[in-house]
Design a protein around this nucleic acid. Structure first.
Lengths: 111, 111
DNA sequence: CAAATATACATAATATTCTTATGTATTGTT
DNA sequence: AACAATACATAAGAATATTATGTATATTTG
């Protein structure tokens, strides 16, 4: 997350949405995917990513599958059933958030 | 800020935009205004608001005018020249942020 | 082929931001 | 008289992310 402060608090939502979209992903893959789809504008740092993944796992939102590729480890993360349900809420919250921010930034359009 | 974690990091942007829009405002007025325009969905807490205002003032983004109304104080805040310039950047960052989040949430529409 | 870059994980110290709780004081409402 | 609203403020703690660092393998490039 190498950007404006605005991204603070949005990492979990990003992770959950990506996993909902892609089934399972490993950490490094996530960083690359985000860089790709935002055309380099959002860079997720490892120091934010790995603790976030571990916490979501501890909460039962994600589960891990460790795979050996060549001589290297990959930890694939995917949503649990609980995680899938929570992702729906997270995305609804994001929509609300964006709506509210747009209302503040562009009040003429809304009230 | 009594809501999802998503709002973390967005308070300064909100404050600066409101002051750009309304010229000058005092703390309590800001809390009410935000509650009003978001129809009660976003509530800025005092514990977040006042330290944020003080910090922006210390940074030279805002300046204060203390007014006595009846026997009570009001501290009106307004953007400095520097603050007005930074608000332009803040709003550009917000647009970028929203655009990127929408890209992540709805990838089919974008790439 | 050595060096640099990319892949892949991880954590610790620190910084930032916000929540929750609390405090003071005046004014308006029931 | 009691409670809610107005109006400011701060302190302890939680949550989140940055920056720096560490380990190790694989691939590219000069």
């Amino acid at each position: 997350m190498k950007n404006s402060q605005l991204y603070k608090g949005s990492l979990n939502t990003i992770l959950m949405k990506l996993l909902e979209e892609n089934g399972k992903m490993y950490g490094y893959e996530i960083t690359q995917k985000v860089k790709e789809i935002t055309k380099g504008e959002l860079k997720i740092t490892e120091g934010a990513l790995y603790p976030a993944l571990h916490k979501l796992e501890a909460e039962g939102v994600l589960e891990v599958e460790v795979v050996q590729v060549d001589n290297r480890l990959r930890k694939y993360y995917k949503l649990t059933e609980k995680g899938s349900a929570e992702t729906v809420n997270k995305l609804a919250e994001l929509e609300e958030f964006i709506k509210n921010m747009q209302t503040i930034v562009n009040p003429k359009l809304s009230y």
